Simulated scan of single mutants.
Amino acid sequence: MRVWSLHPRFLDGKGLVACWRETLLAQAVLAGRTRGYTRHPQLVRFRAQDDPLRSVDAYLVGLADAADLRGFRFDRTRIDRSGTRNGLIAVTDGQLAYEWAHLQAKLAERSPQIAARWHGAAPESHPLFHVVPGPVEDWERPTPSSAQPRSLDSGA
């Protein structure tokens, strides 16, 4: 499961659809409708919110909005509660840098034209998140071969 902290405009079509599908799974987990993935580390940040379901639903709305702009039609009726969320969730610039490197590697392999479009661009977060200084999030499970990027403001 990958629920990107990055703005969904950076995802290729395959990544956008996968993120939608995986976030719907996250919604089902948080709503108690499935027994799988209940300990998935990416759910930590949603569970830490006062209303985890409202937070994941706001994330889904952000994905659907980005999909609309690209001509995709995600079924918004699958979002449990599509109301607005008042607060933002913090994400560290180190996490954003880690995900940016991870996404760039995926895009280079899967969608080289889209990778080229974003080459040299600065990562931005999904509208639900606000960026704060810090390292890769504790809940992230990097692969042993991946380098731990420094925070965005440290020259990484």
Rank of each mutant, 00 (worst) to 15 (best):
M1E: 05
M1H: 12
M1I: 01
R2M: 05
V3W: 07
V3L: 12
V3P: 04
L6P: 00
L6F: 04
L6A: 01
H7G: 02
H7D: 06
R9N: 06
R9K: 09
F10Y: 05
F10K: 00
D12G: 13
G13K: 00
K14G: 10
K14Q: 10
L16Q: 03
V17F: 02
V17C: 04
A18G: 08
A18V: 10
C19H: 03
T23I: 01
A26Q: 06
Q27S: 03
A28L: 05
A28Y: 04
V29N: 07
L30N: 05
G32W: 12
Y37I: 04
T38E: 08
T38L: 08
T38H: 11
H40Q: 10
Q42N: 15
L43G: 14
L43P: 13
R45H: 13
F46M: 12
R47F: 10
Q49K: 03
D51E: 14
L53A: 01
L53G: 13
R54H: 14
S55R: 00
S55M: 01
S55P: 03
S55T: 01
S55G: 04
D57T: 05
Y59C: 02
Y59H: 06
L60D: 11
G62R: 01
L63P: 00
A66M: 06
A67T: 02
D68W: 03
D68T: 08
D68H: 04
L69R: 14
G71V: 11
G71L: 13
G71P: 00
F72C: 11
F72I: 12
R73I: 11
R76T: 08
T77R: 01
R78T: 07
I79L: 11
I79D: 09
R81H: 15
R81T: 14
S82V: 09
G83Q: 12
N86K: 12
G87P: 09
L88M: 10
T92N: 03
T92Q: 03
T92I: 09
T92K: 01
D93C: 03
D93F: 06
Q95H: 08
L96Q: 08
A97C: 08
E99G: 05
W100S: 04
W100I: 08
A101F: 14
A101Q: 13
H102G: 09
H102M: 13
L103V: 09
L103R: 15
L103N: 05
Q104K: 06
Q104T: 11
L107W: 02
E109F: 03
S111W: 01
Q113L: 08
Q113M: 12
A116W: 05
R117A: 13
R117C: 09
W118N: 05
H119N: 06
G120T: 00
A121V: 04
A122T: 07
A122M: 06
P123I: 07
P123V: 07
S125R: 13
H126G: 02
L128H: 09
F129D: 04
F129I: 03
H130S: 14
H130E: 14
V131Q: 11
V131T: 14
V132F: 10
G134I: 12
P135A: 15
P135S: 15
E137Y: 14
E137P: 11
E137K: 11
D138C: 08
D138T: 15
T143C: 13
P144H: 05
P144C: 09
P144Y: 03
S145E: 11
S146P: 10
A147V: 02
A147T: 05
A147M: 07
Q148L: 07
P149Q: 02
S154D: 10
S154E: 14
S154P: 04
G155L: 06
